[in-house]
Design a protein around this nucleic acid. Structure first.
Lengths: 136, 136
DNA sequence: ATTGTATTTTGTAACCGTTACAAATATGGT
DNA sequence: ACCATATTTGTAACGGTTACAAAATACAAT
């Protein structure tokens, strides 16, 4: 879910990422909207400000963020990958009509998951699909 | 999760699907292994028995199964779509090493999900990633 | 059985999101 | 300013999936 980031450049540095202009703008996009965007959504928003921006840069940057664990991939849309600056465990809801993705707060303490013996869990994901209030 | 299907041809008919040879074999694969296969896994297994089989047929058939709701898509692998003949709500675990997917039984009654007002939920998905016992 | 019609299967080409790669550009230290 | 390094960019390739039309099959009526 959302977390306050005061200085994006500083935040990137703290996480071992040299804060280039493109990287700052891309991360700022993530924390400004928290809208679980596709690469294309980020690209279309930033290109007017950074005319030379390449989609490859957006891909590279997001993959770097993921490697440094300040961004998570949300595997929920069959067609496009979604990205989330919120890296804590929480759920998502995707509307089948407008494709928007909302955060869902899930109380993990109440959930018992029968993971088999000798299995090691590194990620937990919960997602729902249906129709959001705008499309209903 | 797993459900017993005695006569696949009859089962397909009951669900409004004309039971062609290919369709029967593909559905038989799903219920024989319940291994959440990719298209390629199904294709490679069946080609020796059906030498003329086309991958397009596998895609077409699975999409038909999904339309008729006797198969579900599992969105868990970033690269390839997975298919599941078990259409009840349950969880999945994918191993990051060998990519295999196991079923996880989840007690839904204990889970409270704070879905926003006027949202309509049609699907619930739970999945986990990590290392399975074979790879540990 | 034969014909005609609709359905299913098949192969090819296209589509699209993503990545590989090398050239161009920017950055930082001396 | 110069050099070494890191970053960005554009193009081409890759791979999973789908569109499409032709070929094969199944089915009904005569």
């Amino acid at each position: 879910m959302k977390q306050r980031i005061e200085d994006v450049g500083e935040f990137l540095k703290e996480n071992g990422i040299k804060p280039s202009y493109q990287r700052i703008k891309i991360y700022e996009y993530l924390v400004k909207y928290y809208n679980h965007p596709t690469v294309d959504m980020i690209y279309r928003e930033l290109v007017p400000k950074i005319p030379t921006l390449s989609k490859t840069t957006v891909y590279n940057t997001l993959n770097l963020f993921i490697e440094k664990k300040i961004t998570a991939i949300i595997v929920i849309d069959e067609n496009e990958t979604r990205y989330d600056a919120g890296t804590s465990v929480h759920g998502h809801f995707q509307c089948n009509e407008c494709a928007r993705i909302d955060d869902i707060d899930i109380d993990l303490s109440k959930i018992e998951i029968p993971i088999p013996e000798h299995y090691e869990v590194s990620e937990q994901h919960f997602y729902f699909k249906g129709k959001c209030s705008n499309c209903n």
